[in-house]
């Protein structure tokens, strides 16, 4: 679980001496920060700063984001690479101290996230395709992209149509949506749970045309419904409308 960390500069013969000294400057300036990415549930998303000594002055030489062991890729100056190695080993030590606590938290958040996820995973589809014409493409993170009439869509799905394409879909709350040619639309969120009083409908049109007819959610909770374009956000109080996102020809 998670990457392994160097045991520290002195005990690891593999770590070369940096070609310029990187030391912890006095004062509070030098604060390596390590952020764990809870969404990814691993330990390797970190960020920090590297300081460089010049004429007795410490200046910020670089920042890094990403995995500890690949963080060199993200440095401003590749000259810092070897310095980073030491930085890393220090980070390793810091991490070791924090690791036990974080692992504990991570373990429980992972367990709870996975269990709630698997409960939902049974069927988290929210809309069905009712018509299709021409080139239509589904962009789904799991890679599944063969669609047909009756195919069920999930939040996070992105639909794209070609120059000859169009598509119609009906959500589980009876919201109806259709998109015209050269369009790109994302179902960002959809929650219709009257028992828990939870409602949410967020759709984003990146380009092209769409026609929307409101369903139950828009009538039940005006605040829950949002139709977003790159330049506007439409709040819906139960109605039918059309949106066109067009590129500006300069």
């Amino acid at each position: 679980m998670g990457p392994s960390y160097p045991n520290g500069h002195s005990t690891d013969p593999a770590i070369a001496e940096p070609n310029f000294p990187v030391q912890r400057p006095t004062g509070k300036k030098w604060k390596p920060k390590c952020l764990f990415s809870f969404s990814r549930l691993n330990l390797n998303a970190c960020k920090g700063s590297i300081f460089q000594q010049e004429n007795g002055q410490y200046t910020k030489a670089g920042r890094f984001y990403g995995k500890l062991h690949e963080s060199c890729l993200n440095l401003d100056d590749s000259g810092i690479c070897s310095a980073l190695k030491q930085f890393e080993s220090e980070m390793g030590l810091i991490m070791m101290n924090l690791k036990s606590i974080w692992l504990f938290i991570l373990f429980f958040s992972a367990v709870s996230a996975l269990s709630s996820h698997s409960a939902l995973a049974a069927d988290n589809t929210v809309a069905a395709i009712t018509s299709m014409d021409g080139t239509v493409h589904l962009n789904r993170s799991s890679g599944e992209n063969r669609i047909a009439i009756g195919f069920r869509l999930k939040p996070g799905d992105i639909l794209e149509t070609g120059a000859d394409g169009s598509l119609g879909l009906v959500f589980d709350d009876d919201t109806r949506l259709s998109i015209g040619p050269d369009s790109r639309l994302e179902i960002e969120a959809f929650v219709f749970d009257p028992g828990e009083s939870e409602f949410s409908f967020i759709v984003r049109l990146f380009k092209g045309t769409a026609v929307y007819v409101s369903g139950l959610i828009a009538k039940m909770s005006t605040k829950a419904t949002k139709f977003i374009t790159p330049t506007a956000s439409i709040g819906i109080r139960g109605t039918r409308f059309a949106v066109h996102v067009e590129e500006i020809k300069s």
Binding site: T231, T239, E247
Partner: peptide
Amino acid sequence: SPTKSVVVLLPDAEGRVGDLRVCS
């Protein structure tokens, strides 16, 4: 690339017209 959004309010199948609040 910069885009422009055009929003049009339509009557529904029964001829009713609701209202929209568009923010930018």
